[in-house]
């Protein structure tokens, strides 16, 4: 995997030992080791997307309040597209409380009047 810590883009070689410890090779710095472990165990991503708003064509921008498991991105996007927000909406308003059982909420990132 490629480290995203800086433009170096170190190629990380992550292996899981029999005792469960994870080793990261190829990282040029400590940040790479931390990133490699996280990506190997439970890769996570912030999701930013668009949600329909009732009665207007312009969509509403939304995000996951924190990162969600990478494999859940597709489900999260589907849940966002399936929901329709009611204006008015303010930045930070929770639109979906616990999206796809991740425990993470979907919040508005722009205002809709």
């Amino acid at each position: 995997m490629t480290c995203i810590g800086c433009p170096m883009g170190c190629q990380l070689d992550v292996t899981k030992e029999a005792d469960g410890t994870i080793t990261v090779k190829g990282a040029g710095c400590g940040r790479g080791v931390i990133y490699g472990k996280q990506e190997a165990v439970a890769p996570q991503r912030m999701v930013t997307a668009l949600m329909p708003v009732k009665g207007r064509s312009r969509p509403l921008s939304v995000k996951t309040a924190t990162a969600v498991p990478k494999e859940k991105i597709g489900d999260v996007l589907a849940a966002i597209a399936a929901k329709c927000a009611d204006a008015p909406v303010k930045i930070g308003d929770v639109l979906i409380a616990d999206v796809c059982g991740t425990g993470v909420s979907i919040v508005a990132t722009s205002n809709a009047r």
């Binding site: 668009l50 329909p52 708003v53 009732k54 009665g55 064509s57 969509p59 597209a81 399936a82 929901k83 329709c84 009611d86």
Partner: peptide, 13 residues
Amino acid sequence: GKLFDSENLSEGK
């Protein structure tokens, strides 16, 4: 096309 179907929108999902 549109991102979202406007007919569905007016009904409110």
